[in-house]
Amino acid sequence: MNMKTVNKVALTTIKIIAGLVVVILAFLIGRILIQGLPHISWHFLTSPSQEFIAGGGISYQLFNSFYLLILTLLISFPISLGAGIFLSEYAPKNWFTEIIRMAIEILSSLPSVVVGLFGFLLFVVQFKMGFSIIAGAIALTFFNLPLLTRNVEQALESVSDLQREAGLALGLSKWKTVIKVIIPEALPGIVTGIVLGAGRVFGEAAALIYTAGQSASTIDFTNWNPFNAASPLNWSRPAETLAVHIWKINSEGIMPDAAAVSAGTSAVLIIVVLIFNLSARYLGNKLYRKYTAAGK
């Protein structure tokens, strides 16, 4: 073969590979939706799950997933904001900062099952919290912290130093300048990161199996007193999420319609995650346009 033919063959192969990757994604999403959508009904979304008979829904799991997500974001956002501000604004250039960055990198690459087991050991067992939403939220916080922190740091760093100097030269404290000038500027980037993280958190199961637990205790949707054990807002009850539900059914589910329920649940899960991802993308693009427009 001469060089030209080799070139042609190689480039065509590359195109075919890229095409195959698209086909894989299309197959995955198509399969989940085609298999799952027919099972999604109002009844499916609003009734509790069944263990032994067909016809169960996912209302508790759906609520638990969102409640856990909100709690996780409530805990992890302030911490990662503080940590991101430290890294972008206060971190001295020395070994101390190096170690901190290393620690965050390690945390982000830890298997989520290990993070979950640590949560189990420390919160569920040691602190006697039992399988509970709050233990799950803390485990998910550990899982979410490194990415969110790095995201906040990058968003803050993308704001021009001129803005910092403007604030400082007016006699404002550095902290005030960051809170009132830099963060508002960085907000679209920060929000994009939160939404992306939300998608990850929403689909996570391994960190939850031994923290939030694998059972969906009965929820009384008319009781909103967080200290009542049946209240949706109670955070010391065990709470199975959508992702854990899928795993649980497939590992040991014995209801006759297990396949249908997990297909439907997968479809719901994927739809929510896709919404998170696409809206993060939309926000990111908007941010990009804003910056390029301001650059003119």
Binding site: P78, I79, S80, L81, G82, A83, I85, F86, L87, E89, Y90, I99, I100, A103, I104, I106, L107, L110, V114, V115, L117, F118, L121, L122, F142, L145, P146, T149, G171, L172, S173, K174, W175, K176, V178, I179
Partner: peptide, 30 residues
Amino acid sequence: ETRQELIGKILSYSSILLIVLVVLSIFIFV
């Protein structure tokens, strides 16, 4: 401003130390 700066430093340093503490305790416990 001096007070704000102190509060800011306390908040951001404690957030970052919390993360480091989490990583350390994961390693120690496991």
